[in-house]
Nucleic acid binder design. Structure first.
Lengths: 68, 68
DNA sequence: TTTATATGCAATATATATATTTCATAATGC
DNA sequence: GCATTATGAAATATATATATTGCATATAAA
């Protein structure tokens, strides 16, 4: 589950801890998502989008051929 | 978790059963997602997008003010 | 050298997405 | 009327996202 969360977070000058607080999850969850080790829920994806001012497509889109 | 899955599925002339088969889940899961009773995983959202040829933003975006 | 910050990772616990099975109902065609 | 298809829903089981806690390391600042 590759994504652009880390890049967007850094652009917004947020630490993992700060993004976690803004989205209501723990730092570990943010870390695992950035590392591509989790398959996050839609609600969490949306909360991350709101926190870093990006769209679902910008942060989470993966072309069909590139999934798995 | 309101979304546009049902509309897109019908546009593609797919039954819930057919969409479920294309996305590798059960009919019940498709039903609950269309009804807004589930918070689906990103991978399933992407699989649905591929099946109905829509983007994450088209099917699943919710403005911040409209989430809960 | 110490202290604080940022991140990664591992182990266990909990919540919930999803599967499985079953039943109900409405619509359609025979 | 009966059979089939499409959908909704409920009950229980399973897999996994997420929480919690704790530890390790690197970096920077004091």
């Amino acid at each position: 589950m590759k994504n652009n969360v880390k890049m967007a977070r850094i652009q917004m000058n947020l630490t993992q801890q700060q993004l976690a607080e803004k989205t209501g999850v723990t730092r570990q969850t943010v870390s695992l998502i950035e590392k591509g080790k989790y398959n996050p829920s839609l609600k969490l994806c949306l909360d991350i989008c709101y926190a870093v001012n990006k769209s679902l497509n910008e942060l989470f889109w993966i072309d069909k051929e590139d999934l798995q």
